[in-house]
Amino acid sequence: MTKAEVLAKLQDVFDSTFVETVIVTEELSANDVEEWDSLSHITLIVSVEKSFGIRFGLGEVESTRNVGELADLIVKKVGAA
């Protein structure tokens, strides 16, 4: 799976998680989205795991700084799976 494909699929996940419309870009981070707080974060990450069929390790997601890095992590995980 390429990073572009991952980002496109992430757009679907964001659409079904947030009420407001959020455009997925590599630079996007929680600070840019009002609804993206520690609470909706949990829902978001579980949805990402479900839709890519992966599971993040302890602390892995926390170490990513934006959606681009999250996508890199997903590419790595999907490749390994």
Partner: peptide, 11 residues
Amino acid sequence: SDFSEVSVLST
């Protein structure tokens, strides 16, 4: 009873 599904519906 799937969490992601209910989350989507809740959204």
